[in-house]
Structure formats: C-alpha cells, structure tokens
C-alpha cells in the first residue's frame, strides 16, 4: 500500500533513530493536545445541557438504542456525564489505556445521541474514529523500546490516515457524482456554474444568508477553479498520509476549504479544522528541511511533470 501511495522521489531520512526520537516526542505532546481539544468540546457543551435534557422525542442511533429502555432524562444525563468525565480522564491520564477507552466511549455515546434527532451531522465523526484508534497506543512501560515507540507513531499515523481517508472519500463522491451526471446529460461538478448551483440550493433550502454565497451566485465562473481545486485536494488527500512533505500545505488547503465552506454555505467544520491542525500542520513526520521542489515533486498527479519542469529535488 505504501509503495502505491508514496511519491517517487521522497526526502531521505538521515539518522532514522534520531528522527524517530524527535517524532515520538512530538507525537506524544500532540496526543495530549488531542485530549485537551476533546475536553474543550465537552466543557463547551455545558451551557446546552439544560436544553439537551429537555428533549422528549428521539430516534436513537444504534449505540444509544438503550435509551429506549430507560427514563430518557436519566439516560441523557448519563451520556452527558460520561462524555465530560471521559474527556477529563483522557486529558489527565492520556498514557492509560482505560482512560483513553473511557474518553472514546463518552464521545461515541454523545455523538450518537446528538445525532439521534432525524439527521446525522458529521463534524465529530473523525474525532470518534481517531479516539477509537488512540485506545490502542502502547502502555507507558513499552515506550522505552524502539519497537514500542514505532508502534506509538504507527497509531498516530493511523489517525492521520483516517482523517485524510474521509476527505478522499468525499472527493471520490464528487468525481463519481460528476461522471454520473455527465453521462446522464445533467449539470456536473466540473462545469463552471456548479459551485454557484450548490451554494444557491443550500441557501434556499434553509432560507439562510452567507457572507460570500450571494456574490458567488452572481459570479459563477469564480466558483469553477475553486471547486476543481477542492476536488483535487479532497480526492488525493489520502496520498498525503504517505508523503510527509505535503502534510502541512495540504492541511492548510483543507482548512482554507472549510473556511470557504462557511463563507459560501454557512457550513462550519471547526472540529475537523482543529484535527487538521493537530495531526497534519504540526505533524511529527514533517521533513526537517523541506524545500519547495520536494513539495512540488510530491504532488499527486502532477508531481512528476513539475519535477521535470523545475528540476529534480536534490538528495540532501
């Protein structure tokens, strides 16, 4: 799998042991920051506890199916308490497997509950999936060995890959949708007015106003390169898990995409933006001395061509 996704030319890693020690130290701090972020989400929810507890009608998703067999208010209280306590324990004791499992369980239950009202939102899905992966970090006693540290880094990489995979799936959906619509003679994502139509549809269906959406609808050609860049960024996101030189610029691109989504569509994925910052902008796998040539050469689809145009990156 790694051979397929990685760049043909990638940065050499002189001093692999030294690089591993540096990456492990950084990844450990980032895992702590991850649980601090999770704790922030749980605490920021406190003002909404009262309204959440007052909910009387629910269509429970399977993880919270047990709510149908308990007093609803008591069940909701249990979920909210588990979410808060789990996040706190994860923050205080991130080196303990049981604490990470509790943090995952609380988040999993809360997100399932919060999406049990007729529509599933996706802003916390990747947090749920990565919190699950982080349960399997090795215990502190095993981190003294190189193998234990490498296992820690592999699971951290798994979180990066999970985050990037969902963007690739989203990009795949857009390409598949475009092929389908093109083949049936409908307007499709590669046409100039596609983003304007998406924005108009979103704004009229909820009668909302966004900051830049109305302007984009009046200037549909502006949306053309934006949507094509977005599809490229999303579709090839998973490749970036195997190309460390691209992790930082790609994450910045995806965060800009989330900001644009809010300005055009009023859709905010702030939680994903935080995860992109933590896992990729601050990636422990970033090359120590990246050059713009290395970055260009690692680009999926165009890397080879750009490397020929601007000269192959040097090996040192």
């Amino acid at each position: 799998m790694r051979k397929f996704f990685r760049a043909r030319k990638f940065l050499p890693t002189p001093g692999a042991f030294r690089a591993q020690t540096r990456a492990f130290g950084e990844a450990r701090v980032l895992v702590r920051c991850y649980y601090a972020g999770l704790f922030y989400f749980a605490v920021a929810l406190l003002p909404e506890w009262r309204s959440l507890l007052e909910r009387s009608t629910i269509a429970p998703l399977w993880p919270v199916g047990w709510l149908s067999y308990t007093d609803l208010r008591t069940g909701i209280m249990l979920i909210l308490a588990l979410y808060l306590v789990g996040a706190l324990v994860g923050l205080v004791l991130p080196e303990k497997g049981w604490a990470r499992a509790l943090a995952f369980l609380g988040l999993f239950q809360f997100v399932a509950f919060n999406n049990s009202f007729g529509k599933i939102g996706h802003s916390l899905h990747v947090w749920v999936l990565t919190a699950f992966l982080l349960i399997f970090l090795p215990e502190a006693a095993k981190l003294a060995s190189r193998a234990g540290r490498q296992r820690f880094l592999t699971i951290f990489w798994g979180c990066q890959a999970m985050l990037l995979l969902v963007y690739s799936m989203s990009g795949l959906g857009k390409v598949a949708g475009a092929i389908y619509q093109f083949s049936t003679g409908q307007p499709h994502a590669f046409m100039p007015g596609a983003l304007a139509a998406i924005v108009a549809d979103r704004l009229v269906e909820t009668n909302s106003r966004s900051l830049l959406g109305p302007w984009l609808i009046d200037h549909p050609f502006v949306g053309w390169p934006i949507l094509i860049c977005d599809i490229y960024l999303q579709l090839f996101a998973f490749w970036v898990a195997f190309r460390p030189a691209l992790q930082k610029p790609w994450a910045i691109g995806l965060i800009v995409f989330h900001i644009a989504s809010f300005l055009f569509l009023t859709i905010s994925f702030a939680q994903n933006a935080l995860l992109l910052a933590l896992l990729l902008i601050l990636s422990p796998f970033r090359p120590s001395q990246p050059t713009w040539r290395h970055t260009l050469a690692a680009l999926p689809l165009f890397g080879g061509l750009l490397a020929r145009l601007f000269g192959r990156p040097c090996a040192s």
Binding site: P63, V111, A112, N115, I120, H122, L129, M169, G173
Partner: peptide, 25 residues
C-alpha cells in the same frame, strides 16, 4: 461505500462521505 445501498446512507459512524456529490439542477 456499502452504506450507499441503505436508504439512510449511513450506519453511524460508518459513512460514505459523499457530501455535495451531485450538483443540484
């Protein structure tokens, strides 16, 4: 991808992530 076969297109937390896959006409 398999969740696309289901009417609700999701088995939480497994999802196709096909967000805005079709251009509305």
């Amino acid at each position: 991808l398999l969740t696309l076969l289901r009417p609700e297109e999701e088995v939480f937390p497994v999802y196709s992530w096909f967000l805005f896959a079709l251009v509305p006409g």
